[in-house]
Design a protein around this nucleic acid. Structure first.
Length: 588
RNA sequence: GGGGACGUAGCUCAAUUGGUUAGAGUACCGGACUGUCGAUCCGGUGGUUGCGGGUUCGAGCCCCGUCGUCCUCGCCA
């Protein structure tokens, strides 16, 4: 070892010892006759001192050192003189008086330094990721990530789970997200696909009798990115045999409580609250509601049906919904101009025809440009329904149910942030259960699996698969943390008959099913046990437990919004020779 | 694919709403300083205003295109 100690561990108890430490020069303070520098490594910072009293030649040498150079220092740990201790540093009571200095490596002048006050732009951070990762915040996040993943592995090990690796090179299935494809050299014209999740493999493992499987699994989806979405991400994937949904949720709840306790020191009361999908859509307009604050959607379709305002009445009569939100005390915050901007936003982003709104005046009456189109009694009814109080700001969306959900979900989120409706440090965990089996896809005019095609319907809904597929509910459960989908799973179909029926509804004929999932259908015939599981989005867990608002900050080497790596400049071009070997010809 | 924001010194930002030689802090280079810790003080180097067109007497600022980063809708079984 080139060092006896790290830069984070020396304390007053080490005073008098001769130590050797290595690290990067964080900052230096040249005072002429004495020079201080903070030596930094992963573990912390330690002040190193050079002075004329000590060794004038060494002091001269130290004056040539610059930021981010890597040095080795041999010296004696000494207590800092009274009045010069630095309470901001854990090592601030001591310093190292240097007797030997070795320059291990120089650095060119870096574009930014880990300690600088203003964070550089994200593109620069990503290009020089090795400098960015030297920052304490990034280190803390990666350490948190390590701790959470280790906690998960320990937990599942204690609960008798086996970690089994599944292939990265699989076959493409057109369902779901777009695949990342890998051309096969040996099979010209054929392609592997990187896994979107290890779904089928883990089900096969259940059929193979490995009744508790877990894996920290990398997954790939070639879809457009978001603040919380990367093209490659990591799931804590698990599957269990001979279990009910309650069993799977119970295991996960134990994990949630343990991780929350160990990382944030908070006690999560169990069991976690559960809400059905339908209820979540009614109350919050979304299947992953942020329940750190109330502000629930209020339905007023019945009042709309009998009111004089044509827009409302027409919507209600057309079978649409008229729903709204009461942003308590927000009337003054939103000016006419701002409201117009919000209206444009909901029209553009969610396809609403418009947004009606009222401000509640001192006397409790509803004021709005459209108020005169209602009778006083009607206004009073709406006011009562929304529990209107002076100063409140009430917005309405009259549209198809799905549109009201999207718009009101968006508005609720906006109000939550802008009106400070929640403590940003609060953590809220809940389950959303009983998702629909299918969603109608307007484009292809077919039913599409809401989760995936192997999801088991509730036993009492099996009949509905044939009669009313849209009403059938799945044995499915999503873990929601602070309005973010932090995990999702289902009990799977384990008999071939139900599986065939579901494939049929999804427009997958028998031949196609055989071609794509033949191995699964075969396996189902060889004694498949009842089984189910869940996958947790590890990157999102790190975001949530780390209080971060960006998934890139949770990943050592993330990709930009256009799925590029700014450091390696992937994706890149390849030689014609490589393409020829793969029997691939480009279109230009 | 659609909408929006941003792009000025190595870095973080400013530049009177189109007007003289594009500024500041920091970094970097040189100098001073024996207890600093965001050290301080003095001096200095540093600019294709992302790129390409256009409008104008005159463009960092206006217009068109393009590239990049971010946010967002679609998309993400």
């Amino acid at each position: 070892m080139l060092r006896t100690h790290t830069c984070g561990e020396l304390r007053e108890t080490h005073v008098g010892q001769e130590v050797t430490i290595c690290g990067w020069i964080d900052t230096y303070r040249d005072q002429g006759g004495v020079l201080f520098l903070d030596l930094r490594d992963r573990y912390g910072k330690t002040q190193v001192v050079f002075s004329t009293n000590n060794d004038p030649a060494l002091l001269e040498l130290s004056k040539t050192l610059r930021q981010e150079w890597v040095i080795q220092v041999v010296g004696k740990v000494t207590a800092r003189p009274e009045g010069t201790k630095n309470p901001k540093l854990p090592t601030g009571d001591i310093e190292v008086r240097t007797s030997k200095l070795t320059l291990l490596n120089k650095s060119v002048t870096p574009p930014f330094t880990p300690g600088q006050r203003d964070l550089p732009g994200e593109d620069l951070r990503l290009k020089y990721r090795y400098l960015d990762l030297r920052r304490q915040e990034m280190q803390q996040t990666l350490i948190l990530r390590h701790r959470i993943v280790k906690e998960m592995r320990d937990y599942f090990d204690e609960h008798n789970f086996l970690e089994v690796e599944t292939p990265m090179l699989g076959r493409s299935t057109p369902e779901g997200a777009r695949d990342y494809l890998v051309p096969s050299r040996v099979h010209p014209g054929k392609f592997y696909a990187l896994p979107q999740s290890p779904q089928l493999y883990k089900q096969i493992l259940m059929m193979a009798g490995y009744d508790r499987y877990v894996q920290v699994a990398r997954c790939f989806r070639d879809e457009d990115l978001r603040a919380d979405r990367q093209p490659e991400f990591t799931q804590l994937d698990l599957e269990m045999s001979f279990v009910t949904a309650d069993d799977v949720m119970g295991i996960i709840e134990g994990l949630v409580a343990r991780v929350a306790k160990k990382t944030l020191g908070i006690d999560v009361p169990l069991p976690l609250p559960r809400m059905t999908y339908d209820e979540a859509m009614e109350r919050y307009g979304h299947d992953a509601p942020d329940r750190r604050f109330d502000l629930e959607i209020v339905d007023a379709t019945d009042l709309a049906a009998k009111c004089d305002f044509r827009v409302f009445r027409a919507a209600a009569e057309a079978g649409e919904r008229v729903r709204g939100l009461n942003a308590k005390g927000a009337a003054e915050k939103y000016s006419r101009k701002t409201i117009d901007e919000i209206t444009e936003w909901v029209k553009h982003d969610f396809g609403c025809k418009g947004m009606a709104w009222f401000k509640v005046e001192a006397g409790g009456t509803l004021a709005s440009p459209i108020a005169k189109q209602f009778s006083a009694e009607q206004l009073a009814e709406f006011a009562t329904r929304f529990k209107a109080e002076p100063g409140d700001f009430i917005v309405f969306i009259a549209d198809k149910f799905e549109v009201t959900c999207k718009a009101l979900y968006g508005l609720r989120k906006k109000f939550g942030v802008e009106l400070n409706l929640y403590d940003p440090k609060a953590m809220n965990f809940s389950w959303i259960i009983e998702f629909p089996m299918f969603a109608w896809d307007e484009e292809s005019k077919t039913w599409a699996a809401m989760h995936h095609p192997f999801t088991a319907p509730r036993p009492q809904d099996i009949e509905m698969l044939s009669t009313d597929p849209g009403k059938a509910r799945a044995v499915a459960y999503d873990l929601v943390i602070n309005g973010s989908e932090a995990g999702g799973g289902t009990i799977r179909i384990h008999d071939q008959e139900t599986q065939s029926k579901v494939f049929g509804l999804l427009g997958i004929d028998e031949a196609t099913a055989r071609e794509r999932f033949g191995f699964l259908l075969d396996a189902l015939q060889f004694g498949a046990p009842p089984h189910g599981g869940i996958a947790l989005g590890i990157d999102r867990w790190i975001m949530l437990f780390g209080g971060l608002d960006n998934i890139r900050d949770c990943i050592a080497f993330p990709k930009t919004q256009k799925a590029a790596d700014m450091m390696t400049e992937a994706p890149g071009t390849v030689d014609l020779k490589q393409l020829r070997e793969l029997s691939i010809k480009l279109n230009q």
